[in-house]
Design a protein around this nucleic acid. Structure first.
Lengths: 330, 330
DNA sequence: CGACACGACTAGAACGTTCTAGAGTCGGAG
DNA sequence: CTCCGACTCTAGAACGTTCTAGTCGTGTCG
């Protein structure tokens, strides 16, 4: 089974009766071959089912047109980000190579795998490693961090304006007549602080500082459920939650205690995760602009690789509100 | 930013005052170097922050210890499969390289990327391409298909015993006293036929052929919703559904029409997708044995690569039932 | 004391590409 | 008729590894 050696440029060259270099020229679509030979070589290559060896190719030609992406499994919208990154990379003629973070494979492992693959730059989705480490890494190749802030100026950042996201949520609720609006935060999770801060500012902007109330939450459904139980003794008329997952946990507890949503209480999530679109859950939420973010991340990586001058190191993208069924009149 | 050339074996060799070959020996942990030099070389390598170039390494050493994995974004439990595959690969000393299928990047593209990376075998998660094409592919390198059947005997298969899965579901419902049990199938989706067939057999096994009823469904939430509306005129007391996503759509329509679950009607999904665990949805479902499947898939790929004899081409793993809140007494 | 096995190390050829430098060929301008 | 430039093509050296076939000591054994 699957015995024979791979077919190489030399095989194609021999079969077509030309030199290896010429075949290389044709395969790369480089100038320096006549239309006639070009066609003939391509035909032979097709017949032999030649597949270029990207390893040898990259090895020789130094620069790799290869972007390494670190993503996390079971992470809301990392899938959407990957989709966008593939599109963006293809548009600028780059390849993507992926490395996943799983419950038993940490970020350092994922990154070191990519380094061995010699990709030209790294795009990290919501990296959790210390920013000092990111900076060190950025010393050897361009690094773009998505979905988080990094102070060190060696690393580029593409993220959503999370403060603004909470402004949108609060404004929406206020427009519906709510005043008593609580916030369930993300605990020690990435960008929890920005969202909490956005909530605080928005409340003050509406003169509602008297109603300001922040409950400690977290990333998961359980965290939302816990926060809901804490809110139940003196329920607000609306809640903004750190993310969608936590929001569903909260929703469940609220409903089990006889509160109707959005009748008694309105809920706004964050992320527009795929499950929040389920008719069942139908969660009003803050959506991040995936397409813009992925396009910018790839563009930035390429600029760094190619040594183009870069205007702003940190690119902060405004989110938008997606109104669904969990918010209503106060 | 990130100016200097990469550090190579030659750099380490020069700095340590030994030959390139010796450094290679040390890095590979191969026999042929004294403990003293070994330590010294490793120390120098660490200081220079040497990273092996996997490209060059694989290029030279023919066999690649590299498995290519094609997975789909936004696919229930592909993330869990990836997690398992990484674990399994690490246990046998292989690397994984990923290629994603997205809404705008098809399977052929994903596969051809991996072929260029010269991985030694392919593991495909629920491949949708024609099995003839899979067979051709298997002519050039070992191919393991997961989560689907393939008749062609060139390709290995690791899949769940989907027929058995529906037996489990029906048995469970019958044990709860149900007789009038309908099935919402997956339409033209992968393994829909096996599950439908399993349902039929199980019903007959219980002497319930009079109640057999199959409604055309599909993969998504909308398909489940449509099927639910079709069932509403003459509702059964229980339904088995092709997958969890479709089941949530069905649940939503049922509840909106005033039916209580599991009071009036019980529902069983399939896949144990992450969202089915949400307290909100709390779906009784059929879970596939991810760990066993991933372990076997990797083991099989490695056997093929290393030319070990293979006993069974197709490995069919029994699923298990996860009882949650959507099933109850008839 | 010579043969010889053994351990530590090295030189140089691969691997499949790309790239640099240059070799033919042809047509047209001088 | 010569020369030049444009065009097509080729030889051979890289790229960073691994692998094969050694070389050189050193110690053991007959």
């Amino acid at each position: 089974m699957s015995g024979e050696r791979r077919v190489t440029l030399a095989d194609v060259a021999a079969a077509a009766g030309v030199s290896v270099a010429l075949v290389s020229i044709v395969m790369r679509d480089a100038p320096g071959a006549s239309a006639a030979t070009r066609a003939r070589v391509l035909e032979v290559a097709r017949q032999l089912d030649y597949q270029p060896d990207s390893r040898a190719r990259l090895l020789r030609s130094g620069q790799s047109r290869l972007l390494g992406v670190v993503f996390g499994v079971m992470h809301p919208f990392h899938d959407d980000l990957l989709t966008g990154l593939y599109d963006a990379a293809e548009r600028v003629g780059y390849e993507l190579t992926l490395s996943a973070v799983t419950p038993r494979r940490d970020e350092r492992t994922a990154i070191s795998g990519l380094l061995q693959d010699r990709c030209a730059a790294l795009v990290l989705l919501g990296p959790r490693i210390p920013s000092a480490e990111l900076a060190t890494l950025a010393g050897r190749l361009p690094v773009v961090a998505m979905m988080r802030t990094v102070r060190q100026r060696q690393v580029d950042v593409v993220r959503t304006d999370d403060g603004r996201g909470l402004h949108l949520a609060v404004d929406h609720l206020v427009a519906l007549g709510h005043q008593n609006i609580a916030h369930v935060d993300g605990g020690r999770w990435l960008s929890s602080a920005e969202r909490r801060q956005g909530y605080r500012e928005a409340m003050r902007g509406h003169g509602l500082q008297a109603y300001e109330r922040v409950v400690i939450g977290g990333f998961g459904e359980e965290d939302g459920a816990r926060a809901a139980r804490e809110l139940l003794d003196q329920p607000p008329t609306a809640v903004t939650v750190f993310n969608d997952l936590s929001a569903t946990g909260l929703l469940d507890v609220l409903r089990r205690h006889g509160l109707s949503v959005p009748g008694d209480i309105s809920v706004v999530g964050y992320d527009d995760s795929s499950f929040s679109r389920l008719a069942h859950i139908d969660l009003t939420t803050v959506a991040q602009d995936i397409e813009t973010m992925t396009t910018l991340a790839v563009a930035r990586a390429v600029e760094r690789i190619e040594g183009a001058p870069v205007a702003h190191r940190e690119m902060v993208i405004p989110p938008r509100l997606v109104v669904r069924g969990t918010t209503g009149q106060a």
